Simulated scan of single mutants.
Amino acid sequence: MDPSFPSKSFLHVVLIFCFLGATRLYANDPYLTLDYYASTCPAVFDIVRKEMECAVLSDPRNAAMIIRLHFHDCFVQGCDGSILLDDTITLKGEKNAATNIHSLKGLGIVDKIKNIVESECPGIVSCADILTIAARDAVILVGGPYWDVPVGRKDSVTANFDLANTNLPTPDESLLSIIAKFLYQGLSVTDMVALVGAHTIGMAQCKNFRSRIYGDLESTSVKNPISESHLSNLRSVCPPIGGGDNNITAMDYMTPNLFDNSFYQLLLNGEGLLNSDQEIYSSVFGIETREIVKNYAADPLAFFQQFSESMVKMGNITNSESFFTGEVRKNCRFVNT
């Protein structure tokens, strides 16, 4: 083995150091159950499903938007609906954090679902639960797997702008840093690789992939007419200078509206749109992640199974304090008065 290549034991030491460098504030909530609303609001799952069907039918991109909202919620204070809060005089929300500003979509969908649920079961179902259920249904509606959603979350009465800037992975982040952020949430390396697979239906803004398409994408990707044409299209969408920061393109150009494993096949071909995605396969530190990518690229059922398990695990990340101090918001954008 090349002595300059990091060993697996070295990688584990680095990751353990990163993990121990931060004290995790969250834990899996023992109060979440599958039948939490069985007697108080049994229609909630049907309501969410029907509204998500309408949303995804009108625009398949809405599926990715809801999944992104759920992910960005859970990584800050746990899955407590804090991402949904608007700024007020007394509360600084998370929507304008660098990782969220101009990129959070789908908020209106959550508002609509909440209004219908409130008319059916006033004051019963939290916004955090609605978002978690909606994320599951979003995946199913674009061809992804089913999983049972434990419910019973409370809505936070606080948000954390600073944690939104530090806890969420960024498009140009290194593999070790991304892994550390997942470990901080109690999510494993396997969870990380599986959850990033949600990018199979995601869109990215030019400002988040410009460095990649004018950097090493040409050298990492396979050389064939399809990949060369794709790179040319990307550069037409995202000019090197002169604006276009908010122009968007699919992270999985093969099947952009279908939840499948083609995202991992793109990584094998060196065509990951974001630097952070391609790092999972191409980084010299990606000894473990590279093998997982290969497995999911070859076996879609293995990806689906792990994605389902990891989504439940992520959805169970809660701030234990929210169970005692949280509430069921009447309006997802504001704490109750």
Score class of each variant (00 low, 15 high):
G186T: 06
I109L: 11
K154D: 00
G93V: 10
E279A: 11
D2E: 08
I116G: 04
F161D: 03
L195Q: 06
L163E: 14
M1Y: 14
S7M: 07
P240Q: 11
S82E: 08
A198T: 15
R235G: 08
S9D: 13
P300N: 08
E120R: 09
V196R: 13
A159N: 10
F323V: 04
T23Q: 10
G186Y: 04
K223Y: 07
Y31F: 12
T220M: 08
H199C: 01
R210Y: 00
I292L: 15
D80R: 11
L32N: 01
E279D: 14
T40R: 12
L258C: 04
D35K: 11
E228C: 02
I124G: 04
D191C: 03
P6D: 08
V48H: 00
G108Q: 10
D46K: 13
Y296I: 07
S227I: 03
V14H: 02
L168P: 00
Y253M: 10
G215H: 05
P6R: 09
I248K: 14
N257E: 11
T190Q: 13
S174G: 13
F334I: 07
P225E: 14
W147H: 15
L20Q: 12
D46S: 15
Q185T: 01
D129N: 06
Y26T: 13
Y146A: 10
P300A: 01
F334S: 06
I47H: 03
N115P: 02
S103H: 10
R24D: 10
K92V: 14
P30E: 03
A97R: 06
P300M: 03
F334T: 12
M314G: 05
N160C: 11
M251S: 12
I317F: 06
G315K: 08
S308Q: 06
A180I: 00
S174Y: 02
G108S: 10
L57D: 14
S9G: 01
C121H: 05
I67P: 00
A297K: 07
N275P: 01
S232M: 11
V56W: 03
W147Y: 15
S282K: 13
P42K: 04
R153G: 04
P122K: 10
S262V: 07
A302Q: 08
L175S: 01
D260S: 12
L217P: 00
V142D: 02
D216G: 08
A63H: 00
T170F: 06
N167R: 13
V284N: 12
E118N: 14
V328S: 09
M192V: 03
T33D: 04
